[in-house]
Amino acid sequence: MSAERDLPTDARRLRIGLLLAACALLTVMVLAAVRALRPGFVEIQARFAGQVGEAAAGVRQVQSCRGELDRCTTCHLGVEREDLRAAGLPPPFGPHPERLGHHQRAHVEIGCSACHGGVGRALNSDDAHVNAATGERDPLMREPHIQAACARCHLPGEVPGTERLLHGARLYAELGCAVCHPLGREGLGGADYGPDLRTIGRKSLGYLRDSLIDPSANFAGSTMPAFDRSFEDHPEALADLLVYLESLPLEPAPGCRLRERNAGLLAAPCASCHAGTAGNAAGRFRHGCVWIRERRDALRCGRCHPGTVPDPGPDKGFCPRIQQERKACSACHDAAR
């Protein structure tokens, strides 16, 4: 097959090759070791120690009521330290910007990632500040978007500090979003409905904004009307609606009874159409959208209001569907049974 092989030369080449291959392997192992043995927090803790003059604390972790581990305070060492407020420390080290109000000991009881998102178990900046579902960088929610996180345990408006979330929820009802995107069991998307939005909060904020302003930006065949003009004069309303959309992952939260009670309400159409001032389902159903009025026949109205419906008005009694869905409301409202 080949020319006569010179065996001694071959053996020497092989020995050199073996040595080179072994060296290559060793180099790779050193590379892997260098990358693996330098967790980000060690460096950050050393910087903190240098600035404050305290010994490095090692890994610190908090177990939330949901049983989740949160290690953010390993790097955010000054979050609970009111005594450092005057020191003006740079970002990862200073105390929490505002008093935590409802959750004064949030950093000990529920951890940071419960509200701010990110990967609470991570031990370096790059891994921690990522939305685990989308892989997006720096998801850390700040005002007003952090109000979306309140919905993991609370109803909109239930606790102080969720005003914009509540406004967003009411806009969702008043603008008639729920007509095409009901948040209940039937909202699975399909020919009759728009896409299921029950987990839409997992998408990025930019994606949500694009989908509202110009639905065809993300989905070429969208039949949803564009809302590019609607919010021109009301940027705050747009932001509030986005806060509500961000609050819609509706993940089950084992351990928090509060959350379990509210999950049914949030998912039930009662609350999404009849959102009252307190975030419960006490309000009246109303939507003033011209587009919906024009298409009343084509939309779901016909299911409860059969025939040609000139204007059913707000209070025409209960349709069977609403009657059925009210079961979810009865979790709290005894009268609704």
Partner: peptide, 30 residues
């Protein structure tokens, strides 16, 4: 046989063996 004398070959073999041992030790330590 070998194109080199025993000493150079021993050096090659010895250092190759040493690097491989370092790899094995490194893997164990890791």
């Amino acid at each position: 046989g070998d194109a080199d004398g025993p000493s150079r070959r021993d050096f090659l073999v010895g250092s190759g063996r040493a690097v491989l041992c370092a790899c094995a030790l490194g893997a164990a330590a890791g």
